[in-house]
């Protein structure tokens, strides 16, 4: 896809988003108008700022589309998208999958470990090893996955570095501060 095509798709997307904001989201989800009269007093309503914001998006998207279609401005180096290609989106998708799976592990590892205990995770979350289990496993998985994907290979050394880095973060956040709660313990 050429830079100009990408810019045109981006502008069309902006026109669509701007229209949805102004035509659907604001009318459906804001209770007062742009200007309201209440007990003979005229005031600015809650819709004022979102309408200005949505109009800016819509108007500039239309202008950008016209610029691209009429060739009055070309997608030069300054204008053009860096390199938003399908392969870069797929790569980011892989990173996001790794991060999401690691966060799921972080969230559920502690409760899973506590299944064998009667008290439940909410009671155990302040005690070792439950306190650190989710963060350690999830953090190590996140670092290992991201480093391995960047380097294109998985080595035992990467897992060791990831585990040590996560332990360092536990030491940094948890040891000096009593009031700090590591993820995900605040949610339980």
């Amino acid at each position: 896809m050429s830079p100009r095509q990408t810019e045109i798709i981006f502008a069309l997307f902006g026109v669509g988003v701007g229209s949805l904001i102004l035509g659907v989201w604001i009318p459906q989800d804001v209770d007062t108008g742009m200007i309201e009269t209440f007990r003979r007093q005229t005031v600015i309503g809650d819709a004022f700022l979102p309408v200005i914001a949505g109009s800016a998006i819509l108007l500039c998207s239309v202008l950008h589309l016209l610029q691209m279609l009429t060739h009055s401005a070309s997608p030069s180096d300054a204008f053009a998208p860096e390199t938003l290609t399908l392969s870069s989106l797929m790569l980011q998708g892989m990173f996001l999958i790794i991060i999401t799976l690691s966060l799921l592990l972080m969230f559920w590892a502690g409760p899973a470990l506590s299944i064998l205990h009667e008290e439940g995770y909410r009671t155990l979350r302040g005690q070792f090893p439950f306190k650190y289990a989710g963060f350690f496993l999830g953090g190590t998985a996140m670092l290992t996955g991201c480093i391995a994907l960047i380097e294109g290979r998985l080595r035992a050394r990467i897992i060791l570095i990831a585990a040590l880095s996560t332990l360092f973060l536990i030491a940094l956040f948890d040891l000096p501060f009593d009031s700090i709660i590591l993820p995900p313990n605040g949610d339980w």
Binding site: P50, I52, A53, S55, I57, C60, H64, F79
Partner: peptide, 16 residues
């Protein structure tokens, strides 16, 4: 940035 129209879009998104 490169284009004022994109800059204003960014401002609009921030305000929204």
């Amino acid at each position: 940035g490169a284009s004022p129209t994109k800059g204003i879009m960014a401002v609009g998104l921030g305000l929204l």
